[in-house]
Design a protein around this nucleic acid. Sequence first.
DNA 1: ACCTGAACACCGTTCAAGT
DNA 2: ACCTGAACACCGTTCAAGT
Lengths: 195, 195
Amino acid sequence: MTQTRRESLISAAAQLLDKGGVGAVTLREVGRVAGVSHNAPYKHFADKYDLLAAVASRELRHQIAKSASSTSGTSSPPPPKTLITDYVRWAQRYPERFKLTFGRWPRGNDELNEAALHVRAIWLASISRAQARGDLPADEPERLTALVLALAHGAADLAIAGHLSAKGRGRADPEDLVEDLFRHLSTSAAANRRT
Amino acid sequence: MTQTRRESLISAAAQLLDKGGVGAVTLREVGRVAGVSHNAPYKHFADKYDLLAAVASRELRHQIAKSASSTSGTSSPPPPKTLITDYVRWAQRYPERFKLTFGRWPRGNDELNEAALHVRAIWLASISRAQARGDLPADEPERLTALVLALAHGAADLAIAGHLSAKGRGRADPEDLVEDLFRHLSTSAAANRRT
DNA sequence: ACCTGAACACCGTTCAAGT
DNA sequence: ACCTGAACACCGTTCAAGT
């Protein structure tokens, strides 16, 4: 089945990515791991970046599937804190995949764009629901979503770069910062409710 | 003067970086732009990453110099909003330098680490001062600094990746998000002062 | 439709040799 | 101390050829 071969190439690329970063993903090594020649990938992907885009969009689709399964049976999205915590843990567990997904692409990729939009939609629904409950400030929902997403993303990226782990006092990991943001947003929401 | 040659190599690398991303920075092209042979860089840098690290730390040192000059004559740091706005504008103006600076490095680089620590120290001083004025919540200063830095960093990175520019309603650029965060933090600070 | 092996242009790095 | 040109191993991509 052609699907199997295509997926084995994606898996091989992801495995090399995790082990040695994007520089370690060469088509020759991908072919070797998947048991094919060094240019068999060209029958499934336009070029190297098309293969890498497939790796990245598979990651986003995994996140989408996880969101769906964690609330199976209901139609409501997971609460923001679950979403954001999962996101930040994923970034720390698979830093190379995180970096790749949000890295620079020589051109757009439909599959990747669509998956990214889907992820954003889930976040938006989750944030909107928390706002309706009064847990978060009544800002414009898309803008508040961007704020929360930016913090999660930035905390994860700085942690990966090693710019967050001041030792001892003041030490903060990404989950701590998420906690802090939600605390301030709740306080702000409550204060505005009183006025 | 050897310093001049070394700096011309760094400038050539930065120029190629801006034009075509990190992939366009080849030692051969750097040599060509600087008017030397393709392996003259090896007399000034251990390898390609050492040259790239020099580009990145030069960027951070520029930011440090800018912070110092904007408050020349005084010993106080710039206010957080100035710092964060400059940071976010730098990232959008030179996305490739931003990506490089916070990208993954095969090994540590003393010059780069030192510059990064210096930048963090300036941010910490700025945030602490705003806290003392009551403009920001009385959190642990290093942790609040990490929060603010993470938001600025994440907003910049998402904007570069194109994940922030929802059109029309809800549109938010990095500076909008910075604005929102400070507004919520001020509200939170005021609310806590009242309890 | 999918795969292979040879070939091409390019790259980082090393090395012997020059000043 | 700094630079050069040749050389080596490696890579992405193309292409003619096979099933």
